[in-house]
């Protein structure tokens, strides 16, 4: 079955955002599905990599909702509608893609009902799209907090280091423990030789769905802060697209 909600996860600095940005570019080029892109990394790297004009972040929506609650009375239903409205207005669009940034938490205090409604609003929004891609924050925290229970495919990204592979394994274990059914595949980034991948494959139980070579084009795009929407076909992008096709994410 084709995954509908995919999260790109892994240790910090392994290239998650680069992989997400390449996939976004490809989804935009193909135009065959309406896709929701969620930048769940507080650093907002995907927003920068794609040059999406910054709309309101989910955390800004959260703050505004809390301010509304303080000012006016609303029951759960009105509150849910209001959040749904604000989340929809926070989307930034480009063709068949709609982009949503998580942002940084700013308002201190316990607003569990707002947080729950927000999560529900995002999940309900994601369901309306043909596909949703989440560029997750580094590590296992988001998976552990069960914030991504709607995710049905984890694209685990690692570099060739043992530490990065171990983090990917942990993420997969936690996600599987939480949901019992999330599929996962490992994409190894910054590979110098195929032997490196074979060596990783021999010491992990994860399904290695592909590997991405070191690529000057990516380095140049990163260095010059160019939008990944204009990334030309290059060995790295081809490798990511091929791996995504293997995982059933792209046809």
């Amino acid at each position: 079955m084709t995954p509908r909600v995919m999260a790109v996860c892994g240790k910090g600095g392994v290239g998650k955002t680069m992989v997400s940005a390449i996939l976004c570019g490809e989804l935009c080029r193909r135009k065959d599905r309406k896709a929701l892109i969620i930048d769940a990394d507080h650093a907002g790297g995907l927003e920068m990599a794609l040059h999406f004009p910054g709309g309101k972040s989910i955390n800004q929506v959260r703050v505004e909702t809390i301010q509304e609650i303080k000012k006016k009375n609303a029951d759960q239903k009105d509150l849910a509608r209001g959040i749904d409205y604000m989340v929809a207005r926070a989307l930034t669009e480009r063709g068949n893609l709609a982009f949503l940034s998580l942002g940084r938490p700013e308002e201190v205090g316990c607003y569990c009902s707002v947080n729950n409604l927000l999560r529900e609003a995002v999940e309900q929004l994601a369901v309306k799209f043909d596909f949703a891609l989440i560029d997750a924050e580094a590590g296992i925290e988001q998976v552990n907090r069960n914030v991504m229970k709607a995710v049905d495919y984890l694209l685990l990204v690692s570099d060739t280091s043992a530490k990065a592979v171990r983090v990917a394994e942990t993420i997969q274990k936690v996600a599987f423990k939480n949901t019992g059914e999330t599929k996962a595949g490992l994409l190894v980034n910054r590979v110098h030789s195929e032997e490196e991948v074979e060596e990783i494959q021999s010491r992990t139980t994860l399904d290695v769905i592909g590997w991405v070579p070191e690529d000057e084009t990516i380095r140049k795009f990163d260095g010059l802060n160019l939008s990944f929407f204009s990334l030309p076909s290059c060995p790295a992008s081809e490798a990511v697209i091929k791996a995504a096709a293997r995982a059933g994410i792209l046809g």
């Binding site: 509304e68 000012k71 006016k72 609303a74 009105d78 509608r81 209001g82 749904d84 409205y85 604000m86 929809a88 207005r89």
Partner: peptide
């Protein structure tokens, strides 16, 4: 449709 009840807005 999207509705913001607290501000009586419909979009």
């Amino acid at each position: 449709f999207r509705v913001l009840p607290s501000r009586q807005m419909i979009w």
